[in-house]
């Protein structure tokens, strides 16, 4: 209730923009291939849900690609982070390097992935998504495993705790919030990887191809409705990650609400 109240100005703006667009398009009689009215986008979504541009089947394929890439990228990111954290001295070399390599526009690999795994295969999109996901997961988890309070390490040392015990009871719980921060970024990135991979070519029944195909046919109403679905999918995946976070680390300041999400 309180959240609703706080967001009243935002909701009003949304209503004003949608209403204003609708009125403007109707009053000025703007053609749909120039700018579609919000109501036209909604109609286009319903009309093309299962036939025509088949947005729903396309969304299923794209989501599969994104989730597959998310799973693969997260798994490799975790493995590499744990491997590097075994060598504490290498961290100061590996982290800046990984951050710099992360500055490469990884989507440039989309054409190679398309050629390697087949332009029509979902695996080519998963590969792009996975390489986008890998870096934030790896970098965040590595930070979490190594940025441990030095007093906590001294405490474990005072107990004569083995390295395995330190990892299990201190480093891994410490890395959990970092991992979930990475995961939240990664959900969006996995969808970007899948969609941009599709922009560089792919099956017709994918959201990326629907966006490109409808736009080149000047069916902007359908383009917008497909983009709406992409946006909703992104928010859905993000909210899922937030839910996981709330369940796993209820004690953390970011979940307790001391800082904005």
């Amino acid at each position: 209730m309180k959240a609703l109240q706080r967001n009243i100005p935002a909701l009003l703006i949304l209503a004003a923009i949608l209403g204003g667009l609708e009125l403007f398009v109707r009053a000025a009689d703007v053609k749909s291939f120039i700018f579609p009215a919000p109501s036209a986008v909604w109609t286009a979504l319903l009309d093309n849900w299962n036939e025509g541009y088949r947005i729903f089947p396309a969304a299923k394929v794209t989501l599969t690609e994104a989730l597959g890439g998310l799973a693969m990228g997260t798994a490799t990111g975790l493995v590499v982070a744990f491997a590097v954290s075994r060598f504490p001295r290498s961290r100061d070399t590996v982290l800046p390097l990984a951050v710099a390599i992360n500055a490469i526009p990884i989507v440039a690999f989309a054409p190679i992935a398309n050629n390697w795994f087949g332009i029509l295969s979902p695996y080519s999109k998963m590969a792009v998504a996975a390489s986008l996901v890998f870096f934030p997961i790896m970098i965040n988890v590595l930070r979490g495993l190594t940025d441990v309070d030095s007093s906590a390490l001294e405490l474990m040392r005072s107990y004569g705790a083995s390295p395995t015990a330190v990892t299990r009871r201190l480093r891994i719980p410490n890395a959990l919030p970092y991992f979930l921060t990475g995961l939240k970024v990664a959900t969006t990135l996995s969808l970007i990887g899948a969609v941009v991979g599709e922009y560089f070519g792919g099956l017709t029944d994918t959201l990326g191809r629907v966006v490109v195909g409808a736009a080149s046919a000047l069916r902007f109403d359908i383009t917008w409705s497909a983009i709406l679905v992409v946006a909703l999918a992104g928010m859905g995946m993000y909210l899922l990650a937030v839910t996981v976070e709330r369940v796993l680390i209820p004690w953390h300041p970011s979940v307790r609400g001391d800082q904005p999400a």
Partner: peptide, 10 residues
């Protein structure tokens, strides 16, 4: 939280 790059072709 959303892939705003999807807007590019549009």
């Amino acid at each position: 939280t959303i892939p705003i790059i999807a807007l590019a072709p549009l």
